[in-house]
């Protein structure tokens, strides 16, 4: 099986700490894959190695193979800066740039890199804000600070910012953990829509969320991949005892 992103024997070490252990799995294109597991199980670490965010941590070492479209992500010829445009990321807490307006946040990925055509920028802002269903709420105050938005709006803005650079894969690291239930619901609906265009990998500790939004689910425990497969199957007839214990709430 060839997915959009393929892991082969992938491990992450922080110094002597073996945080992700020999994980092999596929992430299918145009689908939502959820990674679940108790906190500290390595799921966020795994996610962050998929767009080379660990490059900034000197003690972090990624080994094994990560293939994106069949190319090794950690190959010498790959520019980590370029790859992050192809593989976008949405973070746990909404993190819009505080010194920028709503408008500038959406086109931040471009603006920080080059001067851009005003008309093109306007287009991008409108399209992306519409895609995240934020346009109607903010179209009259695009120049005001992104910090004036509510938490849920900020997170949708961050998603707009991510899709504005036209990634192929979007990584989401517990994107709803700082949000209230209504804002969470909106993000979940958005994820459902986005998968038509993007490959989405979402880390969550909320099992209901995984069940609601994902097509397939991977369960991790103590740095190891315990089980992965179709979400329906994982949540109804898991093969491993550990998975069953976790999803029925017996631990974690």
């Amino acid at each position: 099986m060839n997915g959009k992103v393929t892991l082969e024997n992938m491990s992450v070490h922080f110094g002597n700490n073996h945080a992700v252990k020999n994980v092999s799995m596929d992430f299918a294109a145009h689908s939502v894959t959820a990674i679940i597991g108790p906190s500290g199980c390595g799921k966020s670490t795994l996610l962050r190695s998929l767009n080379r965010m660990h490059d900034l941590v000197p003690s972090a070492k990624v080994s094994g193979t990560i293939l994106v479209d069949g190319k090794n992500l950690y190959d010498r010829s790959i520019d980590p800066v370029a790859i992050r445009r192809k593989i976008g990321m949405v973070f746990q807490k909404p993190n819009p740039f505080p010194a920028m307006s709503i408008y500038d946040n959406v086109v931040a990925g471009y603006k920080l890199n080059s001067r851009m055509n005003r008309a093109v920028a306007d287009e991008i802002v409108e399209t992306c804000l519409k895609r995240v269903a934020l346009w109607d709420e903010v179209k009259d105050r695009l120049k005001s600070s992104a910090m004036d938005l509510s938490g849920g709006q900020q997170q949708r803005l961050c998603i707009a910012r991510t899709i504005a650079v036209q990634p192929e894969v979007i990584l989401m690291d517990e994107p709803c953990s700082a949000l209230d239930p209504i804002a969470t619901l909106k993000i979940e609906e958005l994820i459902e829509e986005l998968k038509e265009r993007f490959t989405i990998i979402i880390v969550t500790h909320n099992m209901q969320q995984a069940a609601r939004v994902s097509d397939s689910t991977a369960f991790m425990y103590m740095g190891e991949l315990v089980e992965n497969g179709a979400t329906k199957k994982i949540f109804t007839t898991p093969e491993k005892k550990q998975t069953e214990d976790y999803i029925t709430g017996r631990f974690g």
């Binding site: 520019d79 980590p80 800066v81 370029a82 445009r85 990925g109 471009y110 890199n113 080059s114 851009m116 055509n117 093109v120 920028a121 287009e123 991008i124 409108e126 399209t127 992306c128 519409k130 895609r131 504005a164 650079v165 036209q166």
Partner: peptide
């Protein structure tokens, strides 16, 4: 929406040409 996304893609390519400079510049 898909029409306008085409424009987005064009803008994206402008950036594409700068990519390789990234790590050298860093």
């Amino acid at each position: 929406s898909s029409l306008t996304m085409k424009n987005v893609a064009i803008a994206g390519e402008e950036i594409e040409s700068q990519k390789s400079r990234g790590s050298n510049a860093d």
